[in-house]
């Protein structure tokens, strides 16, 4: 057994060294500023990373959203077969109760801001969704499971998720109906540097924000429901 482990470690180290030596073969691309100017001209998005993953590589991103949705469904489905705990004990501290609501509001506002300026500065839908999900997580640590259910209308969330997925698909095939290619940025590009510019990039950012927020929120809810707070 020990011999087998030693063999694994030694062979991994050899493969690692070979990989490091072969790193020198990777070519370096210098990107000229004209390339970036072309990107801004075509998409009006100052953040070129967003321009790539929501405009040029939108096809890839859509399927990543599919994978995300599927794994959230898997989490909910498998957690439902675990018996839920009978006695739910939340943190019952007045200071925590007050400041968790405060933190929730701040995180939601910050998340909407991050989602809306995703094409101008670092951020975007994915990060914004996780920030909002963290805010919801902090609130749900201090509440009973029934209170959480009443407050966030948990039974509606899966239908919202389906609605968002449907609207993402519709947005990508809508350009075909008005005589353009599918996955093409069909909205007007607007003025560079404004929030309402860059075509459908802010729209997709908002949709991904809602999708990831509901997804991370349902992960939190079902984990707390079936496993209890720490």
């Amino acid at each position: 057994m020990r011999f087998k482990n030693l063999l694994i470690v030694i062979s991994t180290i050899i493969v690692c060294l070979v990989t490091i030596v072969s790193l020198t073969d990777i070519p370096t691309f210098k990107i000229s500023f004209e390339e970036f100017e072309r990107i801004i001209e075509e998409t009006n998005s100052l953040n070129t990373v967003t321009a790539y993953y929501l405009n040029y590589r939108l096809y890839d991103t859509i399927f990543e959203i599919f994978v995300f949705t599927l794994s959230i469904y898997g989490v909910v489905f498998f957690l439902n077969s675990v018996p839920s705990i009978e006695k739910h004990v939340p943190f019952n501290d007045p200071v925590m109760n007050f400041y968790s609501k405060f933190a929730f509001i701040i995180s939601i506002v910050a998340a909407i801001y991050i989602a809306l300026v995703g094409h101008l500065s670092p951020g975007g839908g994915f990060v914004a969704g996780i920030v909002a999900g963290t805010g919801m997580m902090i609130v749900s640590l201090t509440k009973n499971i029934d209170e959480i259910k009443d407050q966030f209308k948990i039974e509606n969330i899966s239908s919202y998720e389906k609605l968002i997925l449907l609207s993402v698909i519709l947005l990508t095939i809508f350009p075909v109906l008005i005589g353009k290619r599918s996955f093409q940025n069909f909205l007007p590009l607007g003025k560079t540097g404004r929030i309402l510019s860059a075509g459908f990039i802010p729209l997709f950012d908002l949709l991904i924000f809602l999708k990831v927020m509901f997804g991370s929120w349902s992960i939190t809810f079902y984990f707390i429901k079936h496993r209890g707070v720490v």
Binding site: T48, V49, A51, Y53, E64, V67, F126, G215, I219
Partner: peptide
């Protein structure tokens, strides 16, 4: 920007799959 755009989506997906 291309490698960053490729990897940024995979972080969130990696989180969801890890939870699963």
């Amino acid at each position: 920007p291309i490698p960053q755009a490729v990897i940024i989506t995979s972080i969130v997906i990696g989180f969801a799959v890890l939870t699963f």
